[in-house]
């Protein structure tokens, strides 16, 4: 079932009539906190989107454009002041539905490891399933499964205190805590923030695997590369409205508009533009390293496009076979297959 936003608006300073009657202190919002009003004018404004099952959506937008506010509507943490949000066929205006939907939608906030609280990893990861009121055998199965999915060994970490793990491992434990809810949709707010390159690669590979398993993924990111490489669809947020909505290729072809919004374009596209200035132009727009490598190889006239693609596919297949035995390699092969293909080719030529 898709995630549907129908004309959703959200205003931070809005006071519902019920609260007003109770005489909430919010009333001073309109008198003395004009600074606050400046900071959050209207967080969301008439958002209409539909995210079908299994889609990988990237959300970009500069700080304060409403990304975090938007994602918190997906599991009813925030309720729209106008409009409706419907997830899994449940209208989130109903309180009971908001409880239900949290089974289906898992949200990982920025720095999710800061929400860890329990004395052991096992206890922390089991928090979600226990809240769902599952029996202990099922809780245990989910905990083991979730830890395995994030690439941690149950026997090694389960009894440890989450605070004694490394930053990257803590984040994986936190993600396991969300996956243990077995959600159909995973919402990630800057999942790679503050991680080292290996941590980033691991996390990205994890997200990729989860998407491949059929999860709907919504990922907020400041990294245009991560979005370009992974997302099937990109939403650009600006002042609480959807400024652009389309495939990465379409969105990143609007370099000028993106720059005006304080956003950028992927490195690969920048490189393409630089090459173009020096008189080395490709026919098609390039947004990922993979595309870039393809385009350069093509341009250098090593092969025709068809030949090249066939070769790349063959290399991928071979790597896939070896990768079955070696999960470490499997994580990395996707991004580098094209480079490897080029290297191979260079070897053949020489």
């Amino acid at each position: 079932m898709p995630i549907v936003f129908e004309h959703v608006s959200y205003d931070y300073n809005y006071v519902s009539p019920k609260e007003k009657k109770r005489g909430s202190k919010q009333t001073d919002g309109d008198t003395n906190t004009s600074a606050q009003a400046l900071r959050t004018p209207q967080a969301l404004n008439d958002i209409c989107i539909e995210i079908p099952d299994g889609q990988f959506v990237g959300i970009i937008g500069h700080t304060g454009s409403g990304k975090s506010t938007l994602i918190q509507h997906i599991n009813g943490l925030l309720q729209p002041t106008e409009g409706r949000v419907i997830v899994e066929g449940l209208d989130l205006a109903e309180r009971a539905n908001r409880r239900l939907v949290r089974k289906h939608v898992g949200i990982a906030f920025q720095y999710p490891e800061y929400q860890l609280f329990a004395t052991t990893v096992e206890e922390d990861v089991s928090f979600g399933p226990r809240n769902l009121g599952l029996d202990s055998a099922e809780v245990d199965r989910r905990v083991r499964n979730a830890l395995e999915r994030v690439g941690l060994e149950y026997d090694l970490v389960a009894a440890k205190s989450p605070f004694h793990l490394s930053g990257g491992q803590q984040r994986r434990v936190a993600l396991a805590g969300i996956l243990a809810m077995e959600p159909k949709t995973l919402v990630l707010d800057e999942p790679m923030a503050g991680l080292d390159p290996k941590g980033r690669a691991d996390t990205l590979a994890l997200v990729h695997r989860l998407h491949a398993e059929g999860l709907t993924v919504v990922m907020v990111s400041h990294s245009m590369e991560d979005v370009a490489e992974n997302a099937e669809r990109v939403l650009v947020l600006e002042h609480g409205t959807i400024a652009m909505d389309g495939k990465p290729d379409e969105v990143f072809s609007h370099a000028e508009e993106l720059r005006e919004m304080g956003l950028g374009i992927p490195q690969a596209t920048k490189f393409q533009n630089l090459l173009a200035k020096k008189g080395f132009e490709f026919k098609e727009p390039v947004h990922t390293l993979d595309d870039l490598a393809n385009a350069i190889a093509l341009k250098l006239g090593k092969r025709t496009k068809e030949e090249y693609l066939a070769k790349a596919a063959q290399v991928s297949a071979e790597q896939n076979e070896t990768a079955q035995a070696d999960p470490e390699a499997q994580k990395n092969f996707k991004n580098y297959s094209a480079f490897d293909a080029l290297t191979l080719e260079a070897g053949e030529v020489s």
Binding site: L77, R99, F109, F127, G128, M181
Partner: peptide, 9 residues
């Protein structure tokens, strides 16, 4: 909110 997302009430 993070804990609520994990079904806490």
């Amino acid at each position: 909110r993070a804990q609520e997302s994990r079904g806490a009430t």
